[in-house]
Simulated scan of single mutants.
Amino acid sequence: MTRISLKHAGIRLLVLSTVIAVTCPGWADEKPSADERLQKLLKRFPDADKNKDGKLTREEVQEFRQKRQRPRDASAEPTHANVKYGKHERNVLDFYQAESDTPTPLVIYIHGGGFVGGSKKMNPRLVQNYHNAGMSVAAIHYRFIDGEDILLPEPQRDGARAVQFLRSNTKEWNIDPKRVACYGGSAGAGISMWIGFHDDLAEPDSQDPVERESTRIQAIGTIGGQSTYDPIKIKALVGGRAWEHPSIFKAYGVTTAEEALNPTAEQQKRYDESSAITHLTKDDPALYMIYSEADGPLPANARPGQGIHHPNFGRDLVKKMNELGIENVFVYTGDNKSGASPQAMLEFFQKQFAKVK
């Protein structure tokens, strides 16, 4: 088989015409009739039959081929890049505007990295999928914890500030402020949940117009998210040494297990404020959760931090959200990360946006 590679962000795609040539030998020399060739294509690619009438036209083949090709360059680069939303050098975001005559829903991507690393760079194909669904996309950076001046929940507050900034630009960027979702993995998941569950941080009387905007969102998506960043609760919930993750210590400026597990009243207050589940109330948005880390008890020789994406975090959320009557979806894929579908999360956001009046 001859492969024609189109390189973009590490993606290699097989052009549909190559598949057609292999699947239907004789296409080029026209031995089979046109109808026979189309019938063979229909059996190979039933989704190409757009109107589902059981007959495939050349126009349907052409449209199907175009959809299978790589995203256009327009979705590879942000419409607005590295826009400042706060004072710190990492308070920047990228915005990918969907083409629409009416205001679009907004999905905000928040990267993971243990609050000490990571990037807002997005997969162009994922951006294109959201654009195809009529949604604009933003991706943010936030302050990293340093164990001294920047502790939790400062990254969470940066995420909330980004939501406010984006809402302050709804007219310029054609955003529907009533339809906003946040999602991310690991630390980005924790920030997304914190924004979604926390009481509104809007300050109507602030001299800063951004601070007057609401931080409330309509949907949340997470991948390997932590319901709590309280090391005492993590130890009880997950076991092993997950609570000894280096970022947990750095997040609160502690250096020993003794300090972490015996917090002062002020430190416990910081634990509670930084943990999303602490803020969960019955009026909070629906949540779509994906977990893929190994399930069950952690091994006796577990490393410090092992289990920090354990599905027990999600089960803890399911239990409390069910008690409060909040819609939630828990997806456990085991070690098969490919079982977690970004498209399913996108469709979940669509469902939640459709409820907004």
Rank of each mutant, 00 (worst) to 15 (best):
R3H: 10
S5P: 04
H8W: 02
H8A: 09
A9W: 10
A21K: 13
C24P: 00
P25L: 03
D29P: 02
D35H: 11
R44V: 15
F45D: 02
D49N: 14
R65P: 00
R68Y: 05
R72F: 08
E77W: 12
T79M: 08
K84A: 15
E89H: 11
D94L: 06
E99M: 05
T102M: 06
I108R: 02
Y109T: 01
Y109M: 07
I110W: 04
H111F: 04
G118D: 07
G118R: 05
G118P: 04
G118C: 07
M122A: 03
V127L: 05
N132P: 00
G134H: 12
V137K: 04
F144G: 00
F144R: 12
F144Y: 14
I150R: 08
E154F: 03
Q164Y: 05
F165C: 01
S168V: 04
T170C: 10
R179H: 06
V180C: 02
G184R: 06
I191R: 05
H198I: 01
H198A: 13
D199A: 14
D208A: 08
I217N: 01
I223V: 14
G225K: 04
G225F: 05
I234V: 15
A242D: 07
P246F: 08
T255L: 09
E258W: 07
E259N: 07
P263F: 12
K269E: 15
H279L: 08
D284L: 02
A294G: 06
A294P: 01
P297A: 10
G305H: 12
H310Y: 11
N312A: 15
F313P: 00
V331L: 06
Y332G: 00
G339L: 04
A340E: 07
Q350N: 10
